[in-house]
Design a protein around this nucleic acid. Structure first.
Length: 257
DNA sequence: ATGCCGTTTGAGAAACGA
């Protein structure tokens, strides 16, 4: 079983790239982030024609998350991150697929830091940690995939010293991520490739992709009861080089059945 | 060193992303 996550940075503007990648990669399940489309503008027909069913939570202009499935409609569990009825951002959706709970998240960026946006990020992170802990306590197989907007360590960025004051790499952010990991989650790509340089995002300018000046910020966290099924993982880096690409590349894992 | 580019909204410029 192949599960992928892809921050598309606009699902409609990205549609040709998304469809081409779906056809080439053929993941069983896909988590999408940054739809940047309201609920009614999700390109369901094109997704269906590509062989996928979908659930999604849209929002005008910003955010937006979706889960695609080649094996019937995902059974939606929730389309909000619990814990704050005031939070209206579309940043979390969760479904049951093939006996797995699959959470798709778009964690807030948090820049500039410090400031209200950074406070929102850390607050969202606390709620996410509570939700993740409930999954750990359930003992069930859970995959939490998406754009975490977290550079976990200095190994995950081309020049760490330039990012120390950035919301993606500040000590508070790394500590929040580490706190979630310490509940018992496995960072799938790092587990398989402990010493490799792996990036999932390259800025649009300064020829960041050409210089491989990237960040690893899209992650798969695996609960204890599923981590031993991890077979392989990777980044479809070539997609980042396509015309009209997102600034993120798709990331995927393969699980034993 | 820096939103330098890209997307969306809405019809030009601004907000936002990382």
């Amino acid at each position: 079983m192949k599960i992928a996550t892809y921050n598309v940075n606009g699902v409609n503007g990205r549609l040709p790239v998304l469809l081409r990648w779906l056809e080439e990669s053929r993941p069983d399940y896909v988590c999408l982030q940054e739809l940047k489309a309201p609920e009614e503008k999700f390109p369901l027909q094109a997704i269906n024609d590509a062989g996928y069913e979908a659930i999604w939570h849209g929002q005008k202009s910003w955010n937006g998350v979706a889960i695609l499935s080649r094996h019937g409609l995902p059974v939606e569990v929730t389309r909000v991150l619990p814990g704050d009825p005031e939070d209206l951002h579309s940043r979390y959706i969760e479904a049951e697929v093939s006996g797995i709970t699959l959470g798709c998240l778009y964690l807030p960026n948090g820049n500039p830091a410090p400031g209200p946006k950074f406070d929102y990020k850390l607050g969202w992170f606390e709620r996410f940690a509570l939700h993740a802990k409930q999954h750990i306590d359930s003992g069930k197989p859970v995959v939490l995939a998406g754009d975490y907007n977290v550079i976990p360590t200095g190994r995950d960025v081309y020049k760490p010293e330039r990012w120390v004051d950035d919301a993606l790499f500040r000590p508070e952010t790394r500590a929040a991520y580490e706190k979630v990991i310490s509940q018992g989650w496995t960072d799938a790509l790092r587990a398989l490739y402990p010493d490799e340089t792996i990036y999932t995002f390259w800025d649009y300018f300064r020829d960041a992709f050409g210089r491989n000046a990237g960040l690893r910020i899209d992650h798969f966290l695996l609960s204890p009861s599923i981590k031993d099924r991890l077979k392989s993982a990777g980044v479809d880096k070539n997609v980042r080089g396509w015309e009209k690409s997102s600034d993120h590349a798709p990331v995927w894992i393969e699980l034993k059945n």
